[in-house]
Structure formats: C-alpha cells, structure tokens
Design a protein around this nucleic acid. Structure first.
Lengths: 121, 121
DNA sequence: TCTATACTTCGCCACATAACGAAATGAAAG
DNA sequence: CTTTCATTTCGTTATGTGGCGAAGTATAGA
C-alpha cells in the first residue's frame, strides 16, 4: 500500500506531472527542468526527490550536473503502469504541448550558458 | 491536465484508496464504508465527494441511503485506467485483505442495525 | 405534522506540502 | 587550495488537506 501511495502522491502535483512528461523523450539536466517549469532550483530539487523516492524517475550525477530520466526495463510494475497512465493521458494536454515547445528551445541552448543565466536572474 | 490531476489527487490518500478497493465487487451504502474505514461520517462523506468529483465513484440516493459504486461502461478512459491501476496494484495489499474481511462481516449485518449502532457510538 | 435518522455541510484545528531564499555541499577549474 | 557554480538542504511562510463534532438537510415512518 505504501509504495502505491508514494506513487499516487508523487503524481498528485501539476509540476511533477509536467516534469515527468518532459522526461518522456530524453534525459534532462536539472537546470533544464528548472527552466521549463519556471520554479526556483530548490523547489524543483524537492519535486525530483519525491519522484525519485516513488521510483518514477532515476537520477545520475555527472560532475556538477544532475541528470534525470524515466526508469526503463528495470522499473517495477506499478511504476511502469503509472508512467503509462501519465503519458497516455497528458500527451494531448495544452500544458504538455507548451512545455514541449519550451523544452525544444531550452535544448537548443548550450547547457552551460543556460545554467549561468539562471544564476543571474 | 486538471481532470487528470483531479484523479491523481483523489488517489493520493490511503483512505480513499481503501474505499475504492471496497467498491470493487459491490455497491456499498455510506454507512458500510464508514464502518470499514472507521472514520467519522462527515470525514467519509468528504472523501466520497472527492472521489465522485474525479469521476472515480458514482453515487445514487435511495431514500435515506446513499449508495456508492464504481463507474462501469460509461467511465472516461483516464478513470477506467486509474481504477485498473488501483485494483491491479492493491489487490495483494495487507490493507485491502483486512478490509475485505471486515467488509464481509459488515455485509452480513442488517444495514439498519449497522447505521443505528454508528449513531450510538 | 412531528420525530427519527442517514448523510452532508460548516467551522475549526492540526498537520502536510509547496514555494522561496539563504546557506551548505561537492565537483571542476584556475 | 581557492574559487566557481550546479545542485541540495534548511528554515520559513502561506496554503492545502484530513480529521472531528455540531448543525443543517432531506426522507421515512409514527
């Protein structure tokens, strides 16, 4: 019960759903997620921790950068089902489409530049 | 997005997940849900309202009694998927099994007696 | 019509959660 | 080894949520 509840609680927030949708197609660096969601780095960090603890997201640290991705083959059944649910039902949402667009722009910017600009703001 | 969020938020509470599991096999009267969950009637009423607004539960009033059931044929796709997720992943949980047991006892009691006893407590 | 009763709504309280900025952490670069 | 900087942790605040009991609503029965 508690593992399922961790999943449903993790899904019960708009910004976390947006983050999961962004990770559909590719691994992303924290600063890229921060940029698209438009939230403070500390806030996004907390969201990603909640998603990770539910098993919905995996993370990998490379130097100063933290990369997030959806779990693949290895994921537990409830996790896979939850991610399928999210992907299937949000793909057509306005929010997901807007985020896709913004993400394309963000991905076209050099990552180091992106991070530095965030600091300045 | 908001409709999906209503669903995930509705699923993000242990007592609401328990209520959904109880409704798997049969329609139940409010007092029966109250009895198994062991919560105040007003609290259960609020939970059921949240489930109804997400479309996860349907209700029908018959005289003084309110009956709840899961939506069938008519349910929207996300609702069906969410309910499948819950059923598939909680069927084996300790909590669901305990609730099943308690529910069998509750169902064997005359409903009017059950309600009256709740008032007295 | 009056009472009993099944449920809901309201008002309140305690606690959880999301948000931010500041400070801490840790890895790379100078 | 000091600085830079991407990210996390911490402390705080505002808002949301779950819980209860009391009062309200609506229906059945006397």
């Amino acid at each position: 019960m508690q593992d399922i509840l961790a999943i449903t609680k993790a899904l019960a927030d708009e910004n976390r759903l947006r983050a999961l949708m962004m990770l559909r197609e590719q691994e992303l660096c924290a600063c890229q997620v921060i940029e698209v969601l438009g939230l403070a780095p500390s806030t996004v960090s907390k969201h990603m921790t909640i998603l990770r603890q539910a098993g919905l997201v995996q993370a990998r640290k490379e130097g100063r950068w933290m990369y997030y991705r959806l779990p693949q083959r290895s994921a537990a059944k409830p996790v896979k089902e939850a991610l399928s649910f999210v992907k299937a039902n949000l793909a057509e949402s306005v929010q997901a489409k807007q985020d896709d667009k913004k993400l394309q722009r963000v991905l076209s910017v050099d990552r180091e530049l992106l991070c530095k600009n965030q600091i300045k703001k």
